[in-house]
Computed example of a mutant assay.
Amino acid sequence: MHAADPSSPPVFRFAPSPNGQLHLGHALSAILNHDMAKAVGGRFLLRIEDIDVTRCTPEFEQAVYDDLTWLGLDWESPVRRQSEHIAHYQSALDGLIEMGLAYPAFMTRGEVKAAVAKAEADGTAWPRDPDGAPLYPTDDRHVSETERQTRITSGARHAWRLDMAKAISIASDGLSWNEEGDGEKGVITADVSAWGDVVLWRSDAPSSYHLSVVLDDALQRVTHVVRGLDLFQSTAVHRLLQRLLDLPEPRYHHHRLILGADGRKLSKSEGSTGLATLREEGASPSDIRRLVGIGAG
């Protein structure tokens, strides 16, 4: 594991996906990263996580720049765009495949749903991840290499998943992270088994959030990951991948979420909290800081 260079300035990043308008929750995260970097003489980076080419658009990407500029935030150039670095993620995936830690997963969402429904109808409680999604069945772990290659060659649609059992056996001992955020603080034990065989490379888009985020953070020398509490549990997966890929360990700060009127975290579909909408209605950058509970920068 590589240690951060203590002589280098701290590095913070804001990494939105341009698949909708930024809302107040994004504003909180962007402002926190910007202000925390400024307070310690660090660097503030903007990363565009645009792997999902079916939902991410140039218009939404430009809106990110417009919103952050309006908020008075400034970031380093050039901006890293994930869509320009697919080969880097592919190389890391290939390494995990060579280590025997990733396998092709052929089951469709419908097949997984049917397997879960059948098991639960028979009285078996199907395990679910911290986000509430059912874990992927382990059947594809045991498919022979010959059959895998035959199915891939024939054009069978598939994703690549991490063999969590193997990964745990070689890399989970003493796995933890340093947490400085708004929830639980201190050294947090990483419970990776709760996530099952997570997706590393999707069938409908290159790479996955888990794989690309740890690679980008390492390449950009990010020292402080500041993001919402909804990603707190995901940090266990990220720490596991960092260890498997021999990547540096950043410090983590998971901040409170901005909730909507229904008590749930905001989504990009809620136009009433969109920064562009609020700006058009006459809100100022100071108003946004007040709405998310942050003082003037």
Rank of each mutant, 00 (worst) to 15 (best):
A276R: 15
P248A: 06
K118D: 15
G295S: 15
A39I: 12
L231W: 09
T57G: 11
L291V: 00
P127D: 03
Q220A: 12
P137Q: 05
L68K: 12
D35L: 06
G100E: 03
D129M: 00
D216H: 10
R148H: 07
P9K: 03
G132F: 09
S267E: 00
N19F: 10
I48N: 04
M99C: 13
M1N: 13
S154C: 01
A276T: 10
P104V: 01
S269V: 06
T273F: 12
T153F: 05
P127A: 01
A218H: 02
L28T: 07
L101P: 00
Y252A: 04
Y65T: 01
L22W: 03
E281H: 13
R264N: 12
L68E: 09
G260H: 03
T124F: 09
H210Y: 08
P206R: 02
S208I: 01
G271A: 13
P130V: 00
P130W: 01
Y136E: 10
G295K: 13
I152C: 00
A125Y: 07
Q62T: 11
S286W: 05
E145M: 12
E98H: 12
T223P: 04
A87E: 15
G174K: 06
S269F: 05
I152L: 14
I288P: 11
L73A: 12
T235F: 00
A194N: 00
S267Q: 02
G297S: 14
L245P: 10
G25H: 11
T277Y: 05
L46H: 10
L266Q: 05
G196I: 08
L24G: 00
S269A: 14
D204Q: 12
I97E: 12
P9M: 04
L211G: 14
D139K: 10
V214G: 09
E270N: 14
E59L: 07
P58N: 10
I86N: 02
G41Q: 14
V53G: 02
G181Q: 02
G293A: 05
G72L: 09
D131P: 04
L278E: 01
F12S: 09
Q149P: 03
M1A: 14
G123D: 08
S267M: 03
G123I: 07
H85E: 01
L22I: 09
Y89C: 00
H2M: 12
G181E: 04
L229K: 01
A119T: 07
G274T: 06
V225K: 13
R151L: 09
D66T: 14
G186V: 06
R13V: 10
D139C: 02
P248L: 08
S212M: 08
L257H: 11
W177P: 01
S284Q: 06
L257T: 13
L259H: 08
S176K: 07
S29K: 04
L200T: 13
N19G: 09
L244S: 11
